[in-house]
Amino acid sequence: VKKMAKAIMADPNKADEVYKKWADKGYTLTQMSNFLKSKTAGKYDRVYNGYVIHLD
């Protein structure tokens, strides 16, 4: 998940494709939050927020 999150950060155009894969795998927002937690607070906030919007 972190590898794909980094791919989104490097190229935001990949976001919809990645979010669809995550949704197809049934990842919940709680799971995504836990996967994307980082020592650098807020590092993956943009990715998480994008997934929230995708699921909505």
Results as ranks from 00 to 15, higher is better:
17 E>H: 08
49 N>R: 12
32 M>K: 01
45 D>G: 05
20 K>F: 06
52 V>L: 10
55 L>H: 01
24 D>L: 11
25 K>Y: 12
54 H>Y: 15
41 A>T: 12
17 E>M: 10
11 D>E: 08
48 Y>K: 04
41 A>G: 09
3 K>E: 14
3 K>H: 10
11 D>Y: 08
38 S>I: 05
50 G>A: 06
9 M>D: 02
34 N>K: 12
42 G>K: 06
19 Y>C: 05
20 K>Y: 04
38 S>W: 05
6 K>F: 09
43 K>G: 04
34 N>A: 12
3 K>Y: 09
47 V>P: 01
33 S>I: 08
4 M>I: 07
3 K>G: 08
6 K>G: 08
16 D>V: 12
26 G>A: 06
1 V>K: 04
30 T>S: 13
56 D>N: 15
25 K>W: 15
35 F>E: 04
46 R>Y: 12
4 M>T: 03
21 K>N: 12
5 A>I: 05
31 Q>Y: 04
47 V>G: 02
21 K>P: 00
48 Y>M: 12
50 G>T: 01
38 S>K: 05
28 T>M: 03
51 Y>R: 00
13 N>T: 15
34 N>Q: 13
17 E>G: 10
47 V>Q: 01
10 A>W: 09
37 K>S: 11
15 A>Q: 07
36 L>S: 02
25 K>P: 01
33 S>P: 00
13 N>Y: 10
17 E>Y: 10
16 D>C: 11
8 I>N: 03
10 A>I: 11
33 S>L: 13
12 P>I: 08
23 A>G: 05
8 I>S: 02
33 S>F: 14
7 A>E: 14
54 H>N: 02
16 D>A: 13
21 K>E: 14
1 V>S: 02
52 V>F: 06
40 T>N: 09
47 V>W: 02
32 M>H: 01
36 L>N: 00
16 D>P: 13
6 K>Q: 14
43 K>L: 11
10 A>D: 14
49 N>V: 12
8 I>F: 02
28 T>E: 03
12 P>W: 15
51 Y>W: 02
16 D>T: 15
34 N>I: 14
37 K>L: 10
48 Y>Q: 04
54 H>T: 03
47 V>L: 03
22 W>P: 00
53 I>T: 12
24 D>Y: 09
45 D>H: 05
45 D>R: 07
35 F>S: 03
53 I>Q: 14
11 D>R: 04
40 T>V: 12
6 K>S: 10
30 T>V: 13
21 K>A: 15
13 N>R: 14
23 A>M: 10
26 G>N: 06
5 A>S: 03
24 D>K: 11
15 A>H: 04
2 K>S: 01
55 L>A: 02
56 D>E: 15
31 Q>W: 05
56 D>W: 14
17 E>K: 08
48 Y>I: 14
41 A>C: 11
15 A>I: 04
25 K>V: 12
37 K>R: 11
45 D>V: 06
16 D>M: 11
53 I>L: 13
46 R>W: 15
46 R>M: 15
54 H>R: 04
10 A>F: 08
9 M>I: 13
55 L>R: 02
41 A>S: 13
26 G>R: 05
28 T>F: 01
2 K>E: 06
46 R>S: 15
47 V>N: 00
22 W>Q: 00
32 M>G: 01
51 Y>I: 03
31 Q>C: 07
29 L>K: 12
43 K>V: 07
50 G>D: 05
40 T>E: 12
19 Y>F: 10
13 N>L: 12
28 T>N: 07
39 K>F: 09
36 L>I: 02
45 D>C: 09
24 D>E: 14
16 D>G: 12
30 T>G: 11
31 Q>G: 00
49 N>L: 14
45 D>Y: 06
11 D>N: 11
25 K>C: 15
45 D>S: 08
45 D>T: 07
32 M>T: 00
11 D>W: 06
20 K>N: 08
38 S>A: 07
23 A>L: 08
15 A>L: 07
6 K>I: 10
53 I>D: 11
1 V>N: 03
20 K>R: 13
2 K>W: 06
51 Y>H: 01
52 V>N: 04
19 Y>Q: 00
52 V>Q: 11
23 A>F: 08
52 V>W: 08
1 V>E: 03
43 K>E: 12
48 Y>L: 15
4 M>S: 10
29 L>N: 04
27 Y>N: 00
18 V>S: 03
43 K>A: 06
39 K>Y: 09
13 N>A: 14
39 K>H: 13
38 S>P: 04
55 L>N: 02
19 Y>E: 01
54 H>D: 01
28 T>K: 02
48 Y>H: 03
8 I>K: 03
1 V>T: 04
12 P>N: 06
23 A>K: 09
56 D>R: 14
25 K>A: 15
55 L>I: 08
35 F>Q: 04
5 A>M: 04
39 K>W: 08
28 T>V: 01
25 K>T: 11
21 K>S: 14
7 A>H: 07
1 V>W: 04
49 N>Q: 14
48 Y>W: 07
22 W>E: 00
2 K>D: 04
8 I>E: 02
10 A>V: 10
34 N>E: 15
9 M>F: 07
32 M>E: 02
6 K>H: 11
43 K>F: 11
30 T>F: 13
35 F>C: 08
17 E>F: 10
47 V>M: 02
35 F>N: 04
18 V>F: 07
56 D>Q: 15
36 L>K: 00
10 A>Y: 08
48 Y>C: 04
50 G>K: 01
41 A>P: 15
11 D>M: 06
22 W>I: 01
4 M>W: 10
9 M>H: 05
42 G>I: 05
54 H>F: 15
8 I>C: 07
23 A>S: 12
1 V>Q: 02
55 L>T: 03
4 M>N: 08
45 D>E: 10
22 W>S: 01
43 K>C: 09
36 L>Y: 03
5 A>W: 04
2 K>Q: 07
31 Q>M: 13
20 K>Q: 12
14 K>A: 09
17 E>A: 11
49 N>P: 04
21 K>R: 12
16 D>W: 11
41 A>V: 12
44 Y>W: 09
49 N>W: 15
